[in-house]
Structure formats: C-alpha cells, structure tokens
C-alpha cells in the first residue's frame, strides 16, 4: 500500500502528543511500519505545533510536506488554514471549531480571519468541522479534545472501534481511561 499521512496540528499545550501516541500505538499493533515526528519541550507552548504520523509497508521520511497529507487533524481553526497547503488533493481536514487568538491578534497587530474554514471549503477542500471542546466537556474533561478528534479520525479508517479503545487503554493512565473512551465515542458518533 501507499504510505498514508496524517498531520496533527494545533497550539502548543493542546495535547497533540497523546493523539500521536494513540495513532502510533494503534497502527503499530495493526502491523504497519509507522513513523511519528513530534514537538517536545515547554518552549513551544502557545505556539503553532505540528505532529506527523506516517504509516504503510515501509516509511522513510518522518515528515509530511506540501500536498502530501491524507488527513489534517486540527485542534484549532487558524491552524487548519495555516497547514492546509500540506493537504493532498482530495484530502480531508478534521477541525475543532475552537478559536484561540495568537498573540499578534491579541495585541491588535493582526486580524483573525473569521471565515477561514469557508474559504477552504470554497476551494473544494473537505472540511469536517466539529465542536470538540463541547464534546470533550460532555465526556467529562475539556482536555480530551484530542481524543474526541481521534474518534472523528477513526471514521476514516477500516480499523474496528474496539482496537482504538484498546489502544486508548495502552496510552493513558488508568484513571483517565474512562473519560477518554467516552471522548472517543462522542467524537466517533458525532
């Protein structure tokens, strides 16, 4: 099979590491060759962060470049637009509709492009917008936005849900398994 590419983008501190850990664990268990490239350290907090997940028979590069991503999972609207050029023709963007103003917007030096998702839609990009923050809150923890979005990603794959749930059990501390399973289910069913 051709290598598949998933990008996870968002704002530093939103939990992209857990999302990539979940995907990495699941896809390795499924027998794929997997590479995940991450961002570590506190110094990226509040900044734009990108994680790459690639899987297939044999994966070489750990990164995804222009026009290569099958799916972009974005934790925030503006970040979806920032990384849209990485999307493959016919690819899909799964985006949390949350808006987090970057510092230049907060200080008034720049404007937040409010209708940026519509702009992307107008360019024939498949946008799957979801209010993941509300669903995460419903699941019992606003921080589980990452897993809500993974539930949405799961709909794009043929891997059965119980495999995803098993991977969640492997990746999160026991006390957080239930809330994250719930978050996954809410994302999947939404």
């Amino acid at each position: 099979m051709e290598t598949k590419n998933i990008m996870i983008v968002g704002v530093g501190g939103q939990g992209s590491l857990l999302a990539s850990k979940l995907l990495g664990t699941l896809l390795t268990d499924e027998g794929y060759d997997v590479k995940v490239s991450e961002v570590h350290g506190m110094s990226q907090r509040g900044g734009s962060v990108v994680t790459y997940v690639r899987f297939g028979e044999k994966v070489y590069s750990p990164v995804i470049t222009q026009g290569e991503a099958d799916i972009i999972v974005s934790f925030e609207k503006l970040e979806a637009a920032r990384h849209a050029p990485c999307l493959k023709k016919g690819g899909r963007i799964i985006v949390n509709t949350q808006q987090i103003d970057p510092m230049p917007v907060i200080t008034g030096a720049a404007e937040y492009p409010e209708n940026v998702l519509d702009e992307l839609k107008a360019k024939n990009i498949q946008i799957d917008a979801v209010d993941a923050l509300s669903l995460a809150t419903r699941a019992g923890n606003a921080k589980s936005v990452n897993i809500v979005l993974m539930g949405r990603v799961a709909k794009c794959f043929d891997i059965p849900c119980d495999k995803w749930l098993a991977a969640i059990e492997k990746c999160v501390k026991p006390q957080f398994v239930q809330v994250n399973k719930k978050a996954f289910e809410l994302g999947y069913e939404s």
Partner: peptide
C-alpha cells in the same frame, strides 16, 4: 525534507491549496 530534495532536482511538488486570507503567525508565548 523530501520537498527540499524534489525541488533541488527540479521535480514537481504535489498539488496543494492555500487559503487567501493572511494567516497571522502564532509564536510561542509565556
């Protein structure tokens, strides 16, 4: 990355689309 090498060897980059709006930068912050 792979794009650097493609470009240096004169190979075409895969097709891609961008939003028209200016996307404000998001630097790390305190």
């Amino acid at each position: 990355n792979q794009a650097t090498i493609r470009k240096a060897f004169g190979m075409d980059a895969p097709e891609s689309t961008a939003a028209d709006s200016v996307i404000p930068v998001r630097p790390p912050i305190m």
